[in-house]
Design a protein around this nucleic acid. Structure first.
Length: 692
DNA sequence: GCGATCAGCT
DNA sequence: CACAGCTGATCGC
């Protein structure tokens, strides 16, 4: 639960994720995602009054967050005051004190946070330095290195402070199984059940919160059935989610809810009341997504745990694990870090004690070595100087700014005038790291999941199902093709530890992985659940059978490697495909928007290499960022036919660092590619614009 | 009646 | 396991 008070030391005139008390006088508001604990005061009378008395104060958030927020009537009054900002698009925002007229500008960039639909981190750049507010986030190891806008001139930006999601910043949460690992396990459990008969149904016992959508969409995609939910109104403009959901109870996968759901389930009744189909009783299992973790010295265990005859708990986390948090912070290496969350059972001091050593101030004055090239951290950089670095002044060839961001200036008054078009963006960039199952499997040898799950009921499905192997093959090909077309520039950001970790050496061959070496993902635990968090006894019984097998029998490092091995998957998962789209509606306001949003800021900010002199139209800003340049008509076709959203991966997003580790010759090849990468990328960019 | 807060429960 | 959020009780306006 966030204990962030809303204000950052560097920019106290803006408020983020808190809207009460001192935040009532903020010059601008920011909402990182649509979870209630980040919306405190957002619909309180005090803020409502503030809004009525002010002409300029606005709320800034991602397009998806805006849509979700405005779905609720209680927040409708914000409608004219919300300005959505495209992901990864540095945007200048005026901060005006309406009493004095005093004004300063700040540039904000929204970065996908992987927490729930629409969730973002905010990167602020202004006169008081660059700061990053993470909101709630889940980022896999190595993922920060692939966020282009965290970099400048080939290096990590000089970030003064990070306001960090420390929900799991405790060594006991050392590892949380990767998203795709969990998804795969759940998927296999679902498969093992619903393929038995049309009367075998699964109830996903999810909490009332955004964040499970990628589970729904992936299961729906995989099994070709829609997920039954209570409400889908909020997704009406996000076909990629909407098409996987239904309010029709006649489906084999349910995620509906009811206050007495548990009681219902006890009587074999679904929360929606369904109990039979064609007068034949349903056979139901429940799967409850829960956070499971593994301490540093805890052996890996199952991702799915059986908690009753028909009840399962499946690993699922919206937040980064301890090691993911540390990896992230270590990479960013800010001067200061401020925890947003003090997990119960720990203290601010303890959290800071963990995090401080990863910050610059506590490290040697020598710049930290990063394989990327030399660091130029020593110098205090401001917006200007920071962005002025020559693209090629580093020893290693540097990538282009592939995602050359647009720079917009948003003025509230402009927004009001363009509210109509703002409300109907035609294509959204999903701000969360959502994924399709296929997209996880980008690298052939990274694909064996260290864990296969088997239904304890009987069938030992240790082998990767044929279907997923086929998927894998297809994706792999695609990815390899992408590798050729797109410089995998992030390899230059690869850290030493990533390269030298044991993920390569210990990576089982595919046959190994598919065979006896696969640990179980599932275990019976009827009633007890301590085996997951504890490092002891009861767990070891589950582990022991794994302990005699291959890498699982190795020590802690191997345990960790299972996570690392998968982290790349996470990335591709996060980045690749989940892009809810707003239905197309590109009105004349497109032009209007171009007129109303003068691109007058690039010069101010000297984002030299990011300085694209085109303002995206409201409806079509992301052809570039989504890495696709499908003619508009085609895209519309896509929308109207199938949500089979172009599992379009971000063309510039590589897959896993671990998975991606190229062999020597491949590396050489990539370097060569990089040298010529500019043209490729520029062409893509241009064609994107042309498409609009 | 509404909001804020807290306990209880998932 | 913790999370996110609901319900219901209580209190104050």
């Amino acid at each position: 639960m966030s204990s962030f008070k809303g204000q950052m030391a560097e920019y106290p005139t803006i408020s983020i994720d808190r809207f009460d008390r001192e935040n009532l006088k903020a010059r601008a508001y920011f909402l990182s995602h649509c979870h209630k604990d980040h919306m405190k005061g957002l619909r309180a009378p005090a803020l409502k009054r503030r809004l009525e008395c002010s002409l300029k104060v606005c709320l800034y958030c991602s397009p998806v967050t805006k849509e979700l927020l405005l779905t609720s009537p209680r927040y409708r009054f914000w409608e004219k005051r919300i300005i959505s900002i495209e992901i990864e698009t540095p945007t200048q925002i005026p901060l005006v004190d309406e009493a004095s007229g005093e004004k300063e500008d700040i540039v904000v960039t929204l970065l996908p946070a992987g927490h729930c639909p629409g969730s973002v981190m905010f990167l602020f750049q202004g006169n008081n330095g660059t700061v990053l507010y993470t909101g709630d986030f889940r980022m896999a190891k190595g993922e920060a290195a692939r966020m282009e806008l965290l970099h400048s001139g080939g290096r990590v930006k000089d970030i003064q402070s990070v306001y960090l999601d420390t929900t799991f910043c405790d060594p006991k949460f050392y590892q949380i199984p990767s998203r795709e690992e969990c998804l795969r396990a759940i998927s296999e459990l679902v498969r093992s059940w619903i393929t038995r008969s049309p009367y075998h149904v699964v109830w996903l016992n999810c909490k009332a919160a955004y964040g499970y959508e990628y589970l729904f969409t992936n299961l729906s995609e995989e099994f070709g059935v829609q997920i039954h939910v209570d409400k889908l109104d909020m997704f009406r403009n996000m076909p990629d989610i909407l098409h996987h959901l239904t309010t029709d109870r006649n489906t084999q996968i349910h995620a509906c809810r009811h206050p007495k759901a548990e009681e219902y389930f006890h009587w074999n009744k679904l929360p929606c009341g369904a109990i039979s189909k064609n007068r034949i009783p349903l056979h139901t299992i429940s799967i409850k997504p829960s956070t499971m973790w593994f301490g540093e010295r805890t052996r890996k265990t199952n991702v799915i745990v059986r908690t009753g005859e028909s009840s399962y708990r499946a690993c699922f986390s919206f937040h980064s694990s301890y090691s993911e948090i540390k990896d992230f912070l270590n990479y960013i290496c800010p001067v200061n870090v401020y925890p947003n969350v003090i997990p119960i059972g720990t203290t601010l001091d303890k959290v800071v004690e963990i995090l401080k050593p990863l910050c610059r101030s506590s490290q040697s004055t020598e710049p930290k070595y990063k394989p990327l090239g030399k660091l130029k951290r020593a110098r205090k950089t401001h917006l200007d100087s920071e962005e002025e670095d020559d693209l090629f002044d580093d020893p290693v060839p540097l990538p282009l700014r592939h995602k050359a961001p647009y720079q917009l200036t948003l003025h509230p008054e402009v927004f009001v005038m363009t509210a109509t078009s703002q409300n109907q963006p035609e294509q959204w960039r999903q701000s969360t790291g959502y994924l399709k199952a296929e997209s996880m499997q980008t690298i052939p040898w990274a694909n064996f999941v260290d864990c296969e799950e088997s239904n304890s009921e009987s069938e030992e499905e240790l082998q990767t199902p044929a279907s997923s192997q086929e998927d894998l093959g297809a994706v792999t090909q695609q990815q390899q093709k992408a590798d050729v077309e797109v410089p995998q520039w992030e390899i230059f950001f690869k850290r030493n530890d990533e390269i030298t970790d044991d993920s390569l050496e210990n990576l089982p061959s595919s046959t190994e992985a598919g065979g006896s070496q696969s640990p179980k993902l599932l275990s019976d635990s009827d009633g007890e659940s301590t085996h997951i968090s504890s490092q002891n006894s009861s767990q070891s019984t589950h582990i022991s059978e794994q302990g005699s097998q291959g890498w699982d029998s190795q020590s802690d490092t191997v345990l960790l490697s299972s996570q690392e091995r998968n982290s790349g998957d996470i990335t591709s998962l996060n980045k690749s495909s989940y892009r809810p789209k707003i239905k197309e509606n590109i009105p004349a306001s497109q032009m209007e928007q171009n007129v109303l949003c003068p691109r007058n800021t690039s010069s101010d900010l000297k984002h030299r290499d990011q300085n694209v002199k085109v303002v995206p139209s409201v409806g079509e800003p992301t052809a570039l960022s989504s890495g696709k340049h499908i003619p508009q008509e085609k895209r519309m076709l896509n929308l109207s036919t199938n949500a089979d959203s172009p599992s379009s991966s971000d063309f510039e997003i590589p897959s896993t660092p671990e998975a991606e580790l190229p062999k020597g010759e491949h590396l050489q090849y990539l370097y060569e590619k990089l040298a010529t990468g500019e043209n490729i990328v520029l062409e893509k960019r241009k064609s994107s614009f042309l498409d609009t």
